[in-house]
């Protein structure tokens, strides 16, 4: 089994920052796993601007922001395994992964950093009744289809949920020539940033229907419309307020959940309510030597903060590794099984 000092799982802004920071803090053998072909994580599909205002004092797009870190990683000796999915991690810090070129691999590391990001809540998660016709997407997967694959999503869309991803997609669809009939939000106030309401909806005259929700979808093969209704303060549809909006696409933007399948399998604790990994102030999970950062810990609305947190995790992992190395060198007979030297 090949050994590394540090293995980082996930090549988004969190993982990139963590790996670079550990490298700068004297860690030499680092491996980074990313299941996509390119590094950068979700930033690659966020082609809009609004990244880097804190760290670089410039307004960058997602890919530009990512590239600054990807370049530094490329110029370093950090081993990057892209197109590689991590299948399993264990508490003793071994990582099982697979890709087309190397096949199955198992590596051991002195410390791990989990930076696996988040996934989207789906329509199923909020339970809208209706058939399952084509044309219903989560906002993030629609963003991916449009921005990375170049597909058109639909001619007339309704967006459910006013999270930032939904707002940004409303503008994106409009610019690409689709009509956005409405953004429908069950709460009395938009959940995304005000700046996104202004520059994504107001700029284009897209209606925002607050205290409204989608109660059912219509269409068998392809979506033909959605039925919406006003909701009361307990989120229950109010009788007599129903109306029909014809549309061939519904984008669901109802929130993100940290992605922690790997950690859960390994028995690492998460917060019950947020699903984020439970970490201490140095970003260490309850498994010794396993650190975490970014959206896997909690949902961040700014990539800059993710980078800052990634750096903290990288620094903490580096001092954990150096500290342990110091101890094993000083005390070759160190008895704790977890601390045996390579």
């Amino acid at each position: 089994m090949e050994r590394f000092e540090l293995a980082v799982i996930g090549g988004g802004p969190a993982g990139l920052a963590a790996a670079l920071e550990a490298r700068q803090n004297g860690i030499e053998r680092i491996i980074l796993f990313e299941r996509e072909r390119e590094l950068g994580g979700i930033l690659q599909q966020c082609v809009h601007s609004g990244f880097g205002l804190h760290l670089f004092k410039e307004e960058l797009t997602g890919p530009e922001y990512a590239e600054r870190f990807i370049e530094s990683v490329r110029q370093s000796d950090i081993v990057c395994k892209t197109d590689t999915t991590v299948l399993e991690i264990s508490g003793d810090r071994t990582v099982k992964a697979v890709n087309a070129a190397d096949g199955f691999m198992e590596i051991g590391a002195d410390a791990l950093i989990l930076a696996t990001g988040c996934r989207e809540r789906t329509r199923e998660a909020i339970g809208i009744p209706g058939d399952r016709p084509a044309g219903i997407f989560t906002a993030g997967s629609a963003q991916r289809f449009m921005n990375l694959e170049g597909y058109r999503i639909g001619k007339r869309a309704v967006i459910l949920g006013s999270g930032d991803v939904g707002l940004i997609m409303a503008r994106r669809l409009t610019l690409e020539g689709s009509e956005v009939a409405a953004v429908v939000e069950a709460m009395p106030a938009p959940s995304g940033l005000n700046r996104n309401v202004i520059q994504c909806l107001d700029d284009f005259g897209i209606p925002l229907l607050l205290s409204h929700t989608v109660i059912s979808t219509i269409g068998k093969e392809r979506l033909e419309g959605v039925r919406i209704a006003q909701v009361d303060s307990r989120m229950q549809p109010i009788a007599g307020t129903e109306s029909l909006i014809p549309c061939d696409a519904l984008l669901v933007s109802v929130g993100l959940i940290p992605e922690n399948e790997l950690a859960l399998q390994a028995g690492i604790s998460t917060h019950e309510d947020s699903h984020g990994l439970a970490v201490d102030e140095r970003m260490q999970t309850d498994a010794e030597g396993i650190f975490a950062c970014g959206n896997a810990v909690s949902i961040h609305s700014l990539a800059d903060y993710v980078t800052v947190q990634g750096r903290l995790a990288g620094r903490s992992a580096a001092s954990f590794i150096l500290d342990r190395r110091g101890r094993t060198e000083l005390e070759p007979m160190y008895q704790d099984g977890r601390h045996t030297a390579k």
Partner: peptide, 9 residues
């Protein structure tokens, strides 16, 4: 106006 330059708004 609400400033949209940064998230401080």
């Amino acid at each position: 106006l609400s400033c949209i330059v940064c998230p401080k708004e």
